[in-house]
């Protein structure tokens, strides 16, 4: 199997899209959160929104910690490496998991007979 290294274009797309996700959303959330605090201070009615917001903040804080742990642990140093490792492992695992030449679903062109054959080559009997 030939595995090519990532093209630089994909990294540019990643950076642009990351910015497109992060910047407007942080602005939007920040504004709404400030509104929430203002409302909560001025009007007790706003208090009933605490449950969903608290849920969200707790969950997000957990993921922020996880993100920090991953970044500090070097998980993002070579960000493209895991996709190659995964495929290499899969190839090795399949070497002994399947008989050689086994194709679960042959294409019409490659299929020799209808209905299919077993891996032992025997024709079905019904």
């Amino acid at each position: 199997m030939t595995i090519r290294r990532a093209r630089p274009a994909s990294q540019w797309v990643m950076l642009v899209m990351a910015a497109a996700v992060l910047v407007p959303c942080l602005l939007g959330f920040g504004t709404k959160f400030l509104e929430f605090i203002a409302l909560y201070r001025g009007d007790a009615e706003g208090a009933f929104a605490i449950s969903p917001i608290l849920n969200y903040l707790l969950a997000s804080f957990g993921f922020l910690l996880l993100f920090g742990w991953a970044a500090l642990g070097g998980m993002f140093h070579d960000v493209e490496a895991p996709k190659y490792t995964m495929l290499e492992n899969e190839t090795l695992l399949d070497e002994d998991a399947l008989p050689r030449g086994f194709i679960p679903l042959k294409t019409p062109a490659s299929s020799a007979a209808r209905p299919g054959r077993t891996v032992t080559g025997r024709k079905p009997r019904f």
Binding site: A6, S10, Q11, V13, E80, K83, Y84
Partner: peptide, 8 residues
């Protein structure tokens, strides 16, 4: 073949 961009 691997994903186009693991970073993305």
């Amino acid at each position: 073949k691997p994903m186009w961009s693991h970073g993305l």
